[in-house]
């Protein structure tokens, strides 16, 4: 009930993708994906709807694009193989159906197919950090998860600590662990890590 209302009001914000989630299997109701510049607009909507903040955290998707590219290449290769096989089968069938023209058809098939020029695999897109915001409601059961992707080389997004003061510490913690930079945050000094820490231990390429 609440979930449907929230989905409607969130979908009104530009560039926002809203989806319903199977609560029993995943543990939350609404899954929202949006570009980083829209985060304040979306959080303001949640604030008006009376949600409270559960947490803010990050996920480092290092190597995701490479894996995706590999997967895509694998699929393309498989598709090509299937197409070739289908073509060969079709040719064989055609040859079987028309014995008169066997020579004419068989001749080109015998020729080895021209080797495809080794395609320059496009540079895989840059990996990103996923910033996950969890919101919940005190009166009605409705958990909203917001996901924002920011590039690893420039992990910047607007702070929401002026809307939810509780976000202040969560953002500082995310800055500690992932090096995410929340623009407009009053103080991003280390919260849980030592005060002179310049490392981000939850990055997947962090070596102690």
């Amino acid at each position: 009930m609440k979930a449907a209302d929230v989905q409607k009001s969130l979908a009104a914000v530009a560039g926002v993708q809203v989806g319903a989630v199977d609560y029993a299997a995943r543990g939350f109701h609404v899954d929202v994906t949006l570009p980083s510049q829209e985060i304040t607009a979306v959080v303001q909507v949640l604030d008006q709807e009376g949600f409270f903040i559960e947490s803010i955290t990050g996920v480092d998707w290092l190597g995701e694009q490479e894996a995706l590219a590999k997967e895509a290449a694998k699929q393309a290769a498989a598709a090509k193989k299937a197409a070739e096989k289908a073509a060969a089968e079709a040719a064989e069938q055609a040859a079987g159906e028309a014995p008169g023209d066997a020579g004419a058809v068989a001749a080109p098939a015998a020729e080895p197919p021209p080797a495809p020029a080794p395609e320059e695999s496009p540079e895989p897109e840059e990996d990103s950090f996923e910033v996950v915001y969890d919101f919940n409601h005190f009166r009605e059961l409705c958990r909203v998860t917001i996901r924002v992707r920011v590039p690893r080389s420039l992990p910047e997004l607007p702070s929401i600590s002026d809307i939810y003061p509780g976000a202040n510490w969560h953002e500082r913690e995310a800055h500690d662990f992932f090096g995410l930079v929340f623009t407009g945050h009053p103080d991003l000094s280390p919260l849980l890590l030592p005060e002179d820490a310049d490392f981000h231990p939850l990055r997947k390429d962090y070596k102690p």
Binding site: G50, F51, F52, I53, E54, S55, F138, Y164, P165, G166
Partner: peptide
């Protein structure tokens, strides 16, 4: 409580039946 995400007895002491 809502703005800071306080739960448990802290929220229930402030009239939130959560």
């Amino acid at each position: 409580c809502r703005k800071y995400g306080a739960t448990g007895p802290v929220a229930r002491g402030s009239g939130i039946p959560y």
